[in-house]
Design a protein around this nucleic acid. Structure first.
Length: 218
DNA sequence: GACAAGATTGACT
DNA sequence: GTCAATCTTGTCC
């Protein structure tokens, strides 16, 4: 699963649709280093969490499809957006193997484009690393809301899309290249909280909280 | 129809 | 480090 150490900058990358059409747990770390774009704003994914189906009590899909979670049962590469604690939005990428529900929660981004707009939408952030260092924070910074639920991330023309990692030669904020991936327990859950299904770049300051366990190095 | 829980964040001590 | 804010969703009766 997460034994893939090198991310971003390794040259040729498989199609995203191919990466997402496998077990959520396997696909999650492969999202690290890719670019999440919302209009003029974009950032590099540096932290994710995997949520599977019936075998994962913490997942919204654990008890079968509901009006909220039905997106997780649909085609991969779709954006699943839901409101948490009545205040914040959380963004997930639908990813699962055949006949299985699942989604990957995007927990943190490294802002690369449209940073000024992010500051406008997140005036309470104290430093650049606070802009997108949390699922609710990054949704606010990028302007992701409930209306984006169900958007096809694989379509570059969609209002929200995921692109392969780039050399970021024209980005506003310099970003690190290939790095090591670490994993640890998921945050903020009470069920199946011991599963190390959170993946992050080891040395990235934009991560919401650095996982303790190093899985592999690059 | 009513109630409880929740994949978070930011302010306060 | 601790705790309140806020409201949607899901479950139970």
């Amino acid at each position: 699963m997460a034994e893939t150490g090198e991310i971003g900058g390794s040259g040729v990358e498989p199609p995203l649709s191919e990466l997402l059409a496998q077990r959520t747990l396997d696909a999650a770390p492969l999202l690290l280093g890719r670019m999440l774009r919302v209009g003029e704003r974009a950032g590099r994914i540096v932290e994710v969490e995997a949520y599977e189906g019936a075998d994962d009590p913490a997942s919204h899909a654990a008890n079968g499809p509901t009006s909220r979670s039905e997106v997780m049962f649909g085609p991969v590469g779709v954006l699943y957006v839901y409101r948490i604690y009545g205040m914040h939005w959380c963004a997930n990428v639908v990813s699962h193997g055949p006949g299985q529900p699942g989604a990957i929660l995007i927990r943190a981004l490294e802002p690369t484009e449209g940073v000024e707009q992010m500051w406008t939408d997140r005036p309470k952030a104290r430093r650049p690393t606070d802009l997108c260092s949390g699922p609710g924070k990054l949704c606010a910074a990028l302007g992701i809301e409930g209306r984006h639920n169900g958007v096809d991330l694989l379509n570059p023309d969609s209002p929200v899309s995921i692109a392969p990692s780039t050399d970021r030669s024209d980005s506003e904020v310099p970003a690190s290249s290939a790095t090591s991936v670490v994993c640890g327990p998921r945050i903020g859950i009470t069920k199946a909280a011991d599963r190390p299904w959170r993946f992050a770049e080891a040395d990235n300051a934009h991560v919401s909280r650095p996982p303790p366990t190093t899985v592999s190095k690059g």
